[in-house]
Design a binder for these strands. Structure first.
Lengths: 155, 155
DNA sequence: TTAATCTCTACTATGTCAATAGTATTTTTG
DNA sequence: CAAAAATACTATTGACATAGTAGAGATTAA
């Protein structure tokens, strides 16, 4: 059920771009994202390049180059990012809406596991479609306000 | 976010054992599970062996040998099975209750992604903890009643 | 022209999926 | 009681995907 490291890095990189997003053409260097998030730089390059072909980010080459979100943070969901990096959100492909593949079981229509996996897919998709990069940035800003570990504030 | 093939096979095998479960000492042969579910036999052996050390099934060797659930189907959840086969249910280890691991991000307590992943973990755990092998067997029986593909019955 | 940056391709290491082969145990049968 | 057959058990191996590294090239600003 785990996200791949690739997928996790992608989300963390997008969180940085979302947090620093401005309407002008300002970009953030790979180096900077890499340092802020402890992500291996060369690996991050590949991931950002993927997200570029996916239309999530755009890049500027050369000396003052870097990456920025191609659309507003409100218009990019976590689901979109993960689908481009990892493929289906569904735990098994036979319940995927966007990447359906027949599974090896004898009769999908009578597979009880498939029924449960559909429920699971729905809850996963629900969360990932509902959360945009803008939400992420808002939350990040809120968390930055807290001076200490949030556990200390739980009543 | 995908289940490994191993995990999927484990669930499908347990579905068979749950469906055929009886209070006596009857066992089901690997061969039979393998045929019913189109799972490579030799691979299934390894998976069932894992589930044996996990205390989910028990085995009987020799001519009339095979596998059976070690406990009643009501007492085995999908969460237990997947945790033993795959490890954490959480999409990233830094939000796992049972298998927590520090992640590489600079400050977990201020990571917005982590907050979202926690929500996701909760919905996943909710479904997997709530579903027992008895539920699966009930659903399987109900689906067997339906003569045709359930899509045909949706209004 | 130089330096900083992204881009592209290739390579390595590790882990997972799956198949293969052989071993150990139990029941049946002669 | 011993041999044979059926079954679970264990270890090894190869193919493929994932994670990460490396080098050379292309583009841009100063």
């Amino acid at each position: 059920m785990k996200l791949s490291v690739r997928g996790e890095y992608a989300l963390r990189a997008m969180q940085v771009l979302a947090r620093d997003f401005q309407e002008d053409d300002s970009v953030v260097r790979i180096q900077e994202i890499s340092e802020k998030q402890n992500i291996p730089k060369r690996f991050l390059e590949q991931i950002l390049n993927d997200l570029k072909s996916a239309g999530v980010v755009q890049s500027k080459r050369g000396v003052a180059g870097g990456y920025r979100l191609k659309r507003k943070p409100e218009q990019i969901t976590l689901a979109e990012i993960i689908r481009h990096i990892e493929g289906p959100l569904a735990p098994v492909s036979c319940v995927s809406e966007k990447y359906y593949e027949k599974c090896s079981c004898p009769d999908e229509s009578r597979c009880a596991i498939r029924a449960v996996m559909k429920e699971l897919r729905d809850s996963i998709v629900q969360v990932m479609e509902a959360t945009t990069l803008a939400d992420l940035a808002d939350r990040a800003r809120a968390l930055e306000q807290q001076p200490l570990n949030p556990h200390d504030f739980m009543i």
